[in-house]
């Protein structure tokens, strides 16, 4: 604590604390929803300890909650597809973390939205490193503690729908999606994917509509549709 820090490093620490504590807090909702969708406390904690990537964790329990064990393949696929963005995060973090097997192994486990976001927002290499590690470690410890608390609460609560926790799961997904809706391309993809998943729900087995909706991202991303065009300065919405 007494070691001298540069102003940049202090900025990184402040950001890490704010983001770390806020994110760790919503592990409670994950823990509660996981046990209410049929996982036991050990399975819930295993997900936070090993998988440790919020989007994928929520996706897995969301698909299992709606489709049961027969949707297991779809649940695993949804979690894996949502986890692919971590590949890009770890590529971006590799030069910041530096060499060394154990250091990289630890960094890999802590590579998530928030640690990468705090790190890349910093201006000096030492502040970027500090931001990554402090955010990652804070969230890892906090997320696992709050997951356990949430799992214990969920275990006590019992029936899902009576308390409105199925709606809470949808609201949790919306919270993960919300910060990504700033440009028109992501808005278009979100609306189209929601529409595709809804329309396919009566036709396909549970879990599958979500995966088919991912095709929207491949089509829009592949052809770069709905990208911002500079030639329409006075466009109306």
């Amino acid at each position: 604590m007494s070691s001298p820090r540069t102003p940049e490093e202090r900025t990184a620490l402040r950001a890490a604390l704010a983001v770390g504590l806020a994110t760790a807090a919503y592990g409670v909702s994950f823990g509660a929803l996981a046990t209410l969708s049929g996982l036991d406390i050990w399975q819930t904690c295993f997900l936070s300890l090993v998988m440790f990537t919020g989007g994928s964790q929520f996706a897995l329990i969301g698909v299992l909650a709606s489709g049961g064990l027969t949707a297991g393949g779809a649940a695993v696929t949804s979690a894996a597809l949502l986890g692919t963005r971590n590949v890009f995060y770890s590529i971006r973090m590799a030069p910041v973390i530096g060499p060394g097997f154990f250091r990289r192994a630890a960094a890999a486990q802590l590579t998530i939205d928030e640690s990468v976001a705090v790190s890349t927002a910093q201006t000096t290499p030492s502040a970027q490193r500090l931001g990554f590690w402090v955010t990652g470690i804070l969230i890892y410890v906090g997320w696992n503690l709050t997951t356990l608390i949430g799992a214990l609460i969920g275990d006590l609560l019992g029936d899902v729908s009576a308390y409105g926790l199925d709606a809470a799961a949808a609201a949790a997904f919306l919270g993960l999606l919300w910060p990504r809706l700033k440009v028109r391309q992501t808005q278009a993809v979100a609306v189209a994917a929601a529409l595709v998943a809804t329309l396919l729900t009566p036709v396909l087995v549970p879990g599958l509509p979500v995966i088919v909706a991912a095709v929207v991202a491949i089509v829009v991303g592949g052809f770069n549709l709905f990208a911002r065009t500079p030639r329409e300065p006075g466009e109306s919405t």
Binding site: G55, G62, T84, V189, V210
Partner: peptide
């Protein structure tokens, strides 16, 4: 990859809300 995250989350919201 970026849009994949958006599409999956939006689809999950739809299914969780209406399914």
């Amino acid at each position: 990859t970026n849009l994949l995250t958006v599409a999956l989350l939006a689809a999950l919201i739809a299914v969780q809300t209406l399914g």
